[in-house]
Design a protein around this nucleic acid. Structure first.
Lengths: 242, 242
DNA sequence: TTAATAGTGTCTCTGAGACAGTATATA
DNA sequence: TATATACTGTCTCAGAGACACTATTAA
């Protein structure tokens, strides 16, 4: 932004998004951290899986571009959206591309609904969901990018309530705990988990209970007065008091 | 990186760097968190202070561009360099500019040396160092960017040893503690600070002592086997084990 | 009644911080 | 000797985790 070089115009800006959800394959199985990938329809990396994304429009904010490609890919709005990193190594693509990558959380039940309805709409046949633990070969440096997004998620669930973004408006403490367990890949003590969540003040108990094969569990709602997490420099209020 | 729009070429990429140091105005005063700013020599924001930076060269990595502008501004190499954020709001500049911003740490004594020698070299008269607590009016959104960089620094000193990047190879525990105090803006208990630093294993005691008006203090060196901090996705080893 | 999950009580361990006390230099 | 800083010892408190125990439902 100080002196201009002759080559500045040879750089293009793309925006990609790592879209994450925690979904169950069957109603009784453990939830699995999953993400959608898009099969490329042109070179380079033709026919390989890649992160959803596209070129940045000249009159479009970065975050808007991420939300747009997310909507085009999944038909969904994110419950959480944060910039991950700007990837710009010279040789990460045959042409010079700066990819500003975002990561997003979507609700599992919303995913289930839209994949049913949108399946035969526009070009949804090039989109597929994969378990984060079993990813296919990926185009560009997208495997590294996903690794970093998963690291950021696991790190952030440790000191914020981002994981709530995976859940519907009402849920049990077991739902929330299993979400954490699938993200962190380890078992959490139900008793201690309950105490920590209750002490954080991030949940509001309802009068409803979910009945099942055993003792009914109380349903909780999110406390919207508590933010999911600090989302960076563009929401100054939260960044002041981490 | 999927479908191309007609407007992609109207976007330019700049790299700016928030360069931080902790320096003493006099040898007995408390150290102060400081950073260099550059007076703009053209529109927009002509004659206003701004972050050091420039357009990204087409054959240059983002981090290399940050290190280059840092060297051009201060004559120094950073002891720590990390990407801060990609700023890309449509109206943050009259023309569409994506600024990939880095933040860097430099050693206080290196700053003192180079400002003396480089003062009358190229266009160093447009560079000045300011206390982070008393910044002038700034061009573009650079005031917000600096606020965010300072928040990131204060946050990161809490869980890593980044602050060591401000210090020369040998230093006392009081030096290190005062550096932390100037960053965090609060007093730290010398006894507890010592114990925590010793327990972290990040320091190696030497046999030398710094003599002064009172009991001599032992000099320490950095333990280079312990990284300063996780620097993002480009150093995969550290990001795996946070 | 049994099995399985919901939810409570309580103990231990660890790390942060407050603060008293000892050691060693210069003036 | 006085004083300021270097460095050590120890107490308290809060949060994380292990784990025993009680409560409540459906089969």
């Amino acid at each position: 932004m100080q002196t201009q070089t002759e080559n500045a115009d040879d750089i293009r800006v793309a925006v990609s998004t790592v879209i994450l959800t925690v979904q169950r394959t069957t109603s009784s199985s453990a939830p699995v951290l999953s993400l959608p990938l898009v099969r490329r329809t042109r070179e380079p990396f033709y026919d390989q899986w890649a992160l959803p994304g596209g070129w940045l429009n000249a009159h479009e904010n970065l975050e808007d571009a991420a939300a747009r490609t997310l909507r085009e890919t999944t038909g969904l709005a994110p419950s959480y959206l944060e910039q991950l990193y700007a990837f710009g190594a010279v040789r990460r693509s045959p042409t010079r591309v700066i990819s500003v990558v975002y990561w997003a959380l979507v609700q599992a039940d919303a995913v289930a609904e839209t994949t049913a309805t949108l399946h035969h709409q526009h070009d949804q046949e090039n989109v597929a969901w994969f378990s984060a633990a079993q990813l296919p070969a990926l185009a560009f440096d997208h495997a590294d990018i996903i690794d970093y997004a998963l690291w950021r998620l696991r790190n952030k669930v440790g000191y914020s309530r981002v994981a709530h973004g995976f859940l519907p408006p009402e849920f049990t403490l077991a739902d929330l705990r299993e979400t954490y367990e699938s993200i962190l890949g380890k078992h959490l003590d139900p008793a201690n988990f309950r105490r920590q969540v209750e002490a954080s003040g991030s949940l509001i108990p309802t009068d409803k209970f979910r009945t099942g094969a055993h003792r009914p569990a109380r349903l909780y709602r999110h406390n919207s007065t508590v933010e999911l997490a600090d989302k960076g420099p563009l929401t100054p209020e939260e960044t002041k008091t981490p």
